[in-house]
Computed example of a mutant assay.
Amino acid sequence: MDSAGKEREAVQLMAEAEKRVKGSHSFLRGLFGGNTRVEEACEMYTRAANMFKIAKNWSAAGNAFCQAAKLHMQLQSKHDSATSFVDAGNAYKKADPQGPLHHCRQAPHHHRRDLRGRAGGHREGHRALRAGCRLLQGRGVQQASGSANKCLLKVAAYAAQLEQYQKAIEIYEQVGTNTMDNPLLKYSAKEYFFKAALCHFIVDELNAKLALEKYEEMFPAFTDSRECKLLKKLLEAHEEQNAEAYTEAVKEFDSISRLDQWLTTMLLRIKKSIQGEGDGDLK
């Protein structure tokens, strides 16, 4: 089969793999059995990546390896995940210098929301992504700092979902501090401090209060943000063990700024620590 034929077959494999992933509904369900579709998709992405390599379509090969890497991570295949990230980096490197950084920016959000593993069984997951980011940063591209921040934020999101909150806090605080004095980026800093505070909150209410005070002192603009005001309402509701007040505060925030799956997950984890709350609902 010629290169064009290999590329056509690879495109078909990618489409079929995507169908397999969608058919699996959620990786959470997969953790309790029924991983077959995900495993099949992972194999298809890898086969497609190698076909793209034969066709010398390096960008497409990198993308396919990335998809395989994320599925390996969610299937707890830590070594395979790290290997696929490295393969992706090498493919992007052959495509063009911006390829690796583009990968960091574009990692699909829907994979993030499906990770619900426990830290003990998944502690290597975010390390694989970090290893991939280190490889990509090593390209020496001038725009590395901004893109590296975006890559680190994805690591933080994975870490928090894997209940490695201290690692997530370190990254969110680091990126928040890096951006709060930048006129073009400081608007985003409130989001990073908000997420860091939520991670603190899940671990300990007092930690969250102290962190909130620190962030307000470091970044005064945070005080007037909707995120900071929400945190204060949640802390008050949690202290009073008032689940209804907690839910109302979340609903009010969501009516203006739609909560994504990551925030919903973190807020639910906090709510479950309120006595008598076990319904797992924010609405």
Rank of each mutant, 00 (worst) to 15 (best):
R47N: 14
N149C: 08
A128G: 15
C133D: 04
H122C: 11
E124K: 15
H111A: 03
G140I: 15
G99M: 08
A107E: 11
Q143D: 09
W58M: 10
S81R: 05
Q137K: 14
K56P: 00
S81Q: 09
G146F: 07
C66D: 00
G140S: 15
D96I: 07
Q106T: 11
A60I: 00
A68T: 00
A107W: 13
P108E: 15
G121K: 09
Q106P: 00
L129P: 00
A49I: 02
S59R: 08
A88V: 05
A128I: 06
L101N: 05
R112K: 07
A107G: 02
D114I: 00
R47A: 11
H122N: 12
D96P: 03
R139S: 13
M51N: 07
G138R: 10
A55N: 04
A148T: 10
A48Q: 10
A55P: 00
C66P: 00
A88K: 04
R123L: 11
R139C: 09
H122W: 10
S147F: 04
F65R: 04
G146Q: 11
E40H: 08
A68M: 03
A48W: 08
F65T: 04
L136Q: 07
G62L: 05
L71G: 01
L75R: 01
K154N: 12
S77L: 08
A69Q: 01
L71T: 00
G125C: 13
N90H: 09
S145V: 12
L101P: 09
Q106G: 04
N90Q: 13
